[in-house]
C-alpha cells in the first residue's frame, strides 16, 4: 500500500542543514495499523507529511498504491484524495459549518452532488458520534469534537489510507479517549492507518506494528509486544524508560 525507499528530507536554514528524515525505508501493507513513535524532533511527523506530499522529498522514493510520489509528473492531487490526513491542530475550516466541512471537498474534488455529499457527511458524523452538531461552526465545538469532525472530514473522501499526525496531542486529557475510540473503531473496520502518536496505550492495543524513529532514522520496528517488552536497541530502551 505504502512503500518508502531510502526516503530523505533535509531542511536548510540559517547555514545549517537538518536531516529531518534520513533514509527511511518502510512498507505498510493494506489493512495494517502502523504506529510511529519517537522523541520530539525525531522526524516522525515530517515522514508522515511526506507520505501525502505536504513536504517535498529531498531524495528517495515513495509509492502509494503503486503510484510514485517522487515522480514529478505524478498529479499529487489525485494521490491526496486517496490519502486522508488528520492534523494535530484539527485544521477545520472555521468559516464553514461542521457539515459543510465534510461536504466541500466531496463536491469540489470528488464531484459529488450536494445531496449525496450531505448524506455521506451526516452518516460519518453519526459514526463519530456528533450528528447533532452538523449546523454548528467548529469554534463552538470542544477539541475532542473538532478532532472527530476532522476525522470524519478525511473519511468523507473515501481514502484508502489514513494518516494521523499526533491527533490527540492538542487535546485536553479527558477528550483523548473519545478520539482514540473513533480511531480504534476505524482500525477494526480494516482501514490502513499510519499514526504518529505519543499514546503508548493506543500503540500497544491497536497497532499491528510499531516503528521507532530517532534523529530521522528508523531505529527499530516490530510488533507492539516485541517493542514494548523486549526492544533490541539501546535508544528505544531509553525512550521507553522515559515514557512508560
Amino acid at each position: 500500500m505504502i512503500r518508502t525507499v531510502d526516503l530523505k528530507k533535509t531542511f536548510a536554514g540559517r547555514g545549517q542543514i537538518v536531516h529531518a528524515v534520513d533514509g527511511v525505508s518502510a512498507h505498510i501493507k493494506p489493512g495494517e495499523v502502523v504506529v510511529i513513535i519517537g522523541p520530539s524532533g525525531s522526524g516522525k511527523s515530517t515522514y508522515l507529511r511526506c507520505l501525502n506530499g505536504l513536504e517535498t522529498l529531498t531524495s528517495g522514493k515513495i509509492f502509494i498504491d503503486g503510484v510514485d510520489l517522487s515522480n514529478r509528473k505524478t498529479d499529487l492531487n489525485l494521490v491526496r484524495r486517496e490519502v486522508g490526513m488528520v492534523f494535530q491542530q484539527f485544521n477545520l475550516f472555521p468559516h464553514k459549518t461542521v457539515l459543510e466541512n465534510l461536504v466541500l471537498a466531496q463536491m469540489t474534488v470528488r464531484k459529488r452532488k450536494r445531496a449525496e455529499a450531505e448524506a455521506k457527511g451526516r452518516e460519518l458524523l453519526k459514526k463519530v458520534g456528533i450528528a447533532e452538531k452538523e449546523k454548528e461552526f467548529p469554534i463552538r465545538l470542544s477539541g475532542g469534537q473538532q478532532q472527530r469532525v476532522a476525522i470524519a472530514r478525511a473519511l468523507a473522501m473515501d481514502p484508502k489510507v489514513m494518516l494521523f499526525d499526533e491527533p490527540t496531542s492538542a487535546l485536553d486529557p479527558e477528550m483523548v479517549g473519545e478520539v482514540l475510540e473513533v480511531m480504534q473503531q476505524l482500525a477494526r473496520e480494516g482501514m490502513t492507518m499510519v499514526v504518529v502518536t505519543h499514546e503508548m496505550g493506543f500503540a500497544r492495543e491497536v497497532a499491528d506494528r510499531v516503528l521507532f524513529m530517532d534523529h530521522g532514522k528508523l531505529v527499530e520496528e516490530g510488533t507492539p509486544e516485541h517493542f514494548f517488552t523486549e526492544p533490541r536497541e539501546e535508544r528505544a530502551k531509553a525512550f521507553l524508560k522515559q515514557v512508560l
Binding site: 505536504l54 492531487n77 490526513m85 492534523f87 476532522a150 478525511a154 473522501m157
Partner: peptide, 11 residues
C-alpha cells in the same frame, strides 16, 4: 494548516 488541510483533501 488551512492550506495543508485543503490540499490533504485533494484540492
Amino acid at each position: 494548516g488551512q492550506m495543508e488541510a485543503a490540499r490533504s483533501l485533494g484540492m
